[in-house]
Nucleic acid binder design. Sequence first.
DNA 1: ATGTAGATGCAAATGCATTGCATTTGCACT
DNA 2: AGTGCAAATGCAATGCATTTGCATCTACAT
Lengths: 141, 141
Amino acid sequence: MTKVQAADLLRRNGIKKTRQREAVVRILAEAQAPLSVDSIHVRLRHKDDSVNLSTIYRMLEVLLEKGLVEQMHHPLGSKFTYVLSAYGHSHHLTCTRCGVSTRMDSCPVTTALGQLEASHNFHITGHRLEVFGVCAACKSK
Amino acid sequence: MTKVQAADLLRRNGIKKTRQREAVVRILAEAQAPLSVDSIHVRLRHKDDSVNLSTIYRMLEVLLEKGLVEQMHHPLGSKFTYVLSAYGHSHHLTCTRCGVSTRMDSCPVTTALGQLEASHNFHITGHRLEVFGVCAACKSK
DNA sequence: ATGTAGATGCAAATGCATTGCATTTGCACT
DNA sequence: AGTGCAAATGCAATGCATTTGCATCTACAT
Ligand SMILES: [Mn+2]
Ligand SMILES: [Mn+2]
Ligand SMILES: [Zn+2]
Ligand SMILES: [Zn+2]
């Protein structure tokens, strides 16, 4: 995602444009998996485009309210992680050996949940699914 | 679960039996939903069978290693919660209004994941699913 | 009954996330 | 372009959940 595209995303959603916010959005856009606040922080430093940790937290709070990111727990550790929801609702396969997450292309529960809804007299508004296992790379060791 | 049943569970799994451990196991057994460490602590105090917080944390670590409890994140807040896995693999519907969780009787993803496994060259060993929505009680308000 | 490995309680430490406050900055309006 | 002000930022302090070090106690094998 270019600087311009990032700036557009912000403006379209009525979020004031700053160097820090552009930078964070671009990191999220480049990522292929959910990122922790800390790893966003590290990636920014590495790019010499450093942003204070609090600022990142506050920025993600804003993106969350606007529905622009999805927040989830890291399946192993105990941090929150974030993905641009522009990428759409998604789930991940997480390797319990190496910790790497890869995105699944589809959601394996949507249909099943439809049925569930009726039987439980519960209005379903969302769900989270995480799948664990051993990735191809770790299997071959 | 009686004191004796709790003691049995511990002995069968080679876990040294103490007043504290019996008490924690019994609380988990009585619970109909995942409990946070803190809520276990509170319930124990209320029963005049108080156990130190660290002890509860350490005990759950042991139960986790032995596979006797499942650990998950509280779907809303940011604490871990625990359920006896004697109750079997399970998922919960969580109300985003009142926070109450109710157990689903079956797992809506097992079959779907079987197919997934082949297509991703990923050996699946487990999964977590949380479903959100509005419960019957909150709907009628 | 005794010895010992392991369990407990308490306090301090850690890790992640949030908040208060002084300063800076974006941006709407001249 | 210049000005004003609300909102954003950095930094330090704080909050809350969880973990750890250590002295003491206890279960249980012998
Ligand atoms: Mn889904
Ligand atoms: Mn399941
Ligand atoms: Zn792996
Ligand atoms: Zn409810």
